[in-house]
Amino acid sequence: MIGTFIVIGFILIAIFAPILAPYDPIKPNLPQRLKPPSSQHLFGTDQFGRDIFSRVIHGARIEVWIIFLVTVISGTIGTAIGITAGYFGGAVDEILMRITDIFLAFPRLILAMALSAMLGRGLTNAILAISLVEWTVVARLARAEAMKIKSQPYIEAVKAVGASNLRILLFHVLPMCLSPVLVQLTLRMGTIILTAAGLGFLGLGAQPPTPEWGAIVSDGRSYLVQQWWISTFPGLFIAVVVLGFNLLGDGIRDILDPRLRR
């Protein structure tokens, strides 16, 4: 319940950011620099006099954009590789799964960091990097699903009628895999935000002046002692939104696993 509420609020903030934000999130306003929270600047201002509240509000758009693209890209790659491996089995499966293992041999953030840095630091490359790490989760799930579906009698029936492998994959296996994959992707959204924010914080993701939440937290580091608000508020937003996604994920899991219901 609370989770759904937070996530919907998050998406609404992202959609209406230009209306909600009182100031320009990028343009410096040096006379107003490092002002504490007040009625004019709800969350205070940063070292360039930018309104933290406006930056955080606009940041929601960036996070939504990251989640959306990572989900689409990693979902597509993962599903394609997963169902191919699961459906064909044998050597194809073996090779594709070993490739997956190679990606899984790295702690996620570290692989994402390396990819992001070598692709060239920036928002788009960070998204690409995270996607290249995330697809393994999807692939493993899609593979398991495809293996389950493959052994269903109706697939035998379709084969007997002479459908080609590609046709079976696209029209019979893929649609059946879709909903578990989508659920899994939803469950991962909190982690995706944390990874993106981590990259931003380390300076290996979105670059200034992009108002990515992790990057804003990083902006405030050198001012932490006197101007605590710069880092605190965007971090709070990350925590709340990720919490929202995690609660939502727990809710979905409870619905899917009736045993947990009372």
Binding site: G190, L194, A197, G198, F201, G214, V217, S218, R221, L224, V225, W228, S231, T232, G235, L236, I238, A239, V240, V242, L243, N246, L247, D250
Partner: peptide, 22 residues
């Protein structure tokens, strides 16, 4: 535990540093 998996490490780190050190 749900707070633990939701809060970004770098943020909790900065806040604790601010509180317990500074």
């Amino acid at each position: 535990s749900i707070l633990g998996v939701s809060m970004p490490v770098f943020w909790t780190g900065l806040l604790l540093l601010l509180l317990f050190y500074f």
